[in-house]
């Protein structure tokens, strides 16, 4: 096992990318005070929409577009319910996750007459950035990846900086911290929550598309397999600092990539499947132990 090979870095990044998109979706929702646990179902829907559209058009980018747009529409339920009508976002999310699980399986049966998984001949996945191959380091890390992989990283940085340095970013942060205060200054709080929730849906569309057309070229029932929950955990981990998301998600990616390698040397798949969850829980616990100590120390010093 050669952990420090660039190919391993590439594998980590590949595994982490869907979670990166989804965790950015969760993080911006958290910034406006919407506890978004609908990521799992939205990502699943996005994955299905991407495969379906790519299959019908023969163009994987049409798949990405369909995933992004239709998942944003999918997010309307949460956006309208939680932002406009003040309904419980947790219950809506549980319902919409279940709905996504059902409707993707249902449509797979109705549209393609298959169950379990769908990977027909003629389903085109996203192209890899082969042209990077000759560039040192970058080629090894990104050469085998889709363009969505660097896009995820760039988006996180852009959104993170946008939050910090633009008037709208400032307003957005205020909306989540103290909605009444923002409203008293004429900020349309439900409006921010609504559009951010929709944008989060679009990001989950990217996450799904990368999953079903980038990481693999297939749609399988419940293929997100808990990645949306890992993303929620990553959001908790960075506690309002989206720029730290890559660190949190790459940890997950590393666990998954390591799992694949361990499977390669004979470790049972069941146990490597559990590793990302175990690591996520452990990291959450460990950071929770350290944070209070640090703040105490810094304040008494």
């Amino acid at each position: 096992m050669h952990v420090f090979e660039l190919s391993f870095v590439a594998a980590v990044l590949l595994a982490a990318t869907p979670v990166l998109f989804a965790s950015l979706a969760g993080a911006i929702s958290a910034q406006v005070g919407v506890f978004n646990i609908a990521l799992e179902g939205q990502m699943l829907w996005g994955a299905f929409a991407a495969v379906a559209a790519s299959y019908y058009t023969g163009n994987p980018w049409a798949g990405v577009l369909a995933a992004v747009v239709s998942t944003a529409v999918f997010a309307l339920v949460l956006a309208v319910g939680a932002a406009r009508w003040k309904a419980d976002p947790i219950v809506i999310a549980i319902g919409s996750n279940l709905f996504a699980l059902g409707i993707t399986g249902f449509l797979m049966g109705v549209l393609f007459d298959v169950s379990g998984s769908f990977s027909p001949r003629g389903l085109v996945g996203l192209p890899k950035m082969q042209w990077l191959h000759d560039v040192p380091v970058l080629g090894a890390v990104f050469g085998g990846q889709t363009a969505l992989v660097p896009l995820a990283l760039v988006l996180i940085v852009v959104v993170g900086l946008w939050l910090l340095f633009t008037p709208h970013g400032l307003r957005l942060r205020g909306v989540g911290e103290h909605p009444e205060a923002a409203a008293s200054l004429g900020i349309n709080v439900p409006g921010y929550q609504f559009w951010v929730t929709i944008a989060a849906g679009a990001l989950c569309g990217f996450a799904g598309a990368q999953l079903s057309l980038g990481n693999v070229t297939v749609f399988t029932e419940n293929m997100t397999a808990g990645r949306g929950w890992i993303a929620v955990a990553a959001v908790m981990l960075v506690a309002g600092r989206p720029l730290w998301l890559p660190l949190a998600c790459l940890g997950f990616g590393a666990a998954e990539a390591l799992g694949f390698r361990l499977q390669g040397v004979g470790a049972p798949q069941q146990l490597t499947d559990a590793a990302p969850y175990l690591i996520t829980i452990l990291v959450l616990v460990l950071t929770r132990i350290r944070i209070p100590r640090r703040t105490k120390a810094s304040l008494t010093a």
Binding site: L170, R173, G174, E177, H178, E180, A181, S184, L185
Partner: peptide, 10 residues
């Protein structure tokens, strides 16, 4: 307002 409407972290 009587109860201040401020963003503590800003």
């Amino acid at each position: 307002h009587q109860h201040f409407k401020l963003f503590d972290s800003l």
